[in-house]
Simulated scan of single mutants.
Amino acid sequence: MPIAVGATPVRIKDLADFDGVRGNDLVGYGLVVGLDGTGDGMRNAPFTEEMLAGLLERLGVNVTDDALRSKNVAAVVVTATLPPFARSGSRIDVGVSTIGDAKSLLGGTLVMTPLKAADGNIYAVAQGSIIAGGVSIAGEASRVVEGVPTGGSIPVGARVEREVEFDFAEVRNIRIALRNADFTTATRIEDAINREFARRLAVTQDSGTVLVEFALLGDVNPARVVGRIENLLIEPEDRAKVVVDHKAGTIVMGDRVRISKVAVSQGNLTLKVSEAPLVSQPNPFADGETFSVPRTSVEVREEAGIGFAQVDDSASLSDLVGGLNALGVRPRDMIDILKSIHAAGALHADLIVQ
């Protein structure tokens, strides 16, 4: 299938995932030591106290509850992702986040922490110095925090101890799962694969899945076949969307957005009410009372609007944005206009408001 002029071809590996080729989430619960007085308060975080006592006992140190008053220890949750086909002994990155009332993880070291998957088995063990992404400075009366010092990471901080059993060489077929389901994109992937191998290997099952059979290729290495497939170039298709972030005043629109013929009018009305009370006092040594006399000022101001502006039939993204910018419409006003155009049925796209 020829690629349209001006379209940007994309690799299949950037549009879809291969069934079975996936990572696995890992999680663990551990201790960070070596903090500069920014750790958990033992009385406010009893789980930290219990875990620290258990760690010291395993190391042969007998302690009592009264002896644990350290502010240099914090309880943390450790997270990581086990990559596909990770082998025993390979290293992976981990993230560390506090769960108690610790103020910062700067300068801390994670003590050996086992990481488990959803099946309850341990697949990796994490340990190492934490790189925190913030700064916390506190005084007697105030505290300044930049970033998030209660979270950090340990690059290559975990070692894989158990492998996920999956023999890719024995796979006889594989499913390609599109990240954005679309029938047009799925059929283009099917056509590109069949054209590359000159036979009907791929079949579109639905808008998000393409099945590839290796049997028609004879005795082949599935990894080499997938390597050829994932680098094929196709032109992806997607629904026209307009994404609006009303809080930040951000608008993102795809180039397939179209607007039907519609007239737009926009203006602003500002009502300002202010109070400036007057105080009335009697003359000196006179027999009288002091009164407060209310005084209200009301101001109504209507800013100049854009009047009625007509958007032609099937206007493109550049036409719409260029026209509104030429009329001096501000970003937040443009968001309201887009909502109104969508409500009128003239915006031919999915309007996503965040």
Rank of each mutant, 00 (worst) to 15 (best):
R143D: 03
R143Q: 13
R143G: 07
V144R: 07
V144H: 04
V144W: 04
V145E: 05
V145Y: 01
V145G: 03
V145K: 10
V145S: 06
E146H: 10
E146D: 15
V148Q: 11
V148G: 02
V148H: 12
V148I: 13
V148N: 14
P149K: 09
P149L: 08
T150N: 08
T150G: 08
G151H: 04
G151I: 10
S153G: 02
S153I: 09
S153R: 14
I154V: 05
I154P: 00
I154A: 03
I154Y: 01
P155N: 13
P155H: 12
P155I: 10
P155W: 08
V156Y: 12
V156A: 15
G157H: 13
G157D: 10
G157W: 13
G157C: 01
A158T: 06
A158H: 02
R159P: 07
R159I: 15
R159M: 15
R159L: 15
V160G: 00
V160I: 14
V160Y: 01
V160R: 00
E161I: 07
E161F: 09
E161W: 05
E161C: 04
R162E: 08
R162P: 09
R162L: 15
R162M: 14
R162Q: 14
E163P: 07
E163W: 10
V164G: 04
V164E: 13
V164W: 07
V164H: 04
V164R: 13
V164P: 00
E165V: 13
E165C: 06
E165W: 05
E165L: 11
E165G: 05
F166H: 11
F166Y: 12
F166V: 06
F166S: 04
F166G: 03
D167N: 15
D167Y: 03
D167R: 11
F168N: 01
F168Y: 12
F168K: 07
F168Q: 02
F168H: 07
A169I: 07
E170C: 02
E170G: 11
E170T: 15
E170K: 14
E170Q: 12
E170N: 13
V171C: 02
V171M: 09
V171R: 07
V171D: 02
R172T: 11
R172P: 04
R172H: 13
R172M: 06
N173P: 05
N173Q: 15
N173G: 10
I174Y: 01
I174W: 00
R175W: 08
R175H: 05
I176T: 04
I176N: 00
A177V: 15
A177I: 10
A177T: 13
A177F: 04
A177M: 14
L178F: 00
L178R: 01
L178H: 00
L178Q: 00
R179K: 15
N180C: 06
N180S: 10
N180M: 12
A181H: 14
D182Q: 03
D182V: 02
D182P: 01
D182Y: 01
F183V: 14
F183T: 09
F183M: 11
T184C: 04
T185M: 02
T185H: 00
A186F: 03
A186G: 04
A186N: 01
T187E: 04
T187G: 06
T187L: 07
R188G: 02
R188Q: 07
R188V: 04
R188P: 00
R188A: 14
I189G: 03
I189E: 02
I189N: 01
I189S: 03
E190Q: 11
E190T: 12
E190V: 03
E190W: 02
E190Y: 02
D191V: 05
A192T: 02
A192M: 09
A192K: 03
A192F: 06
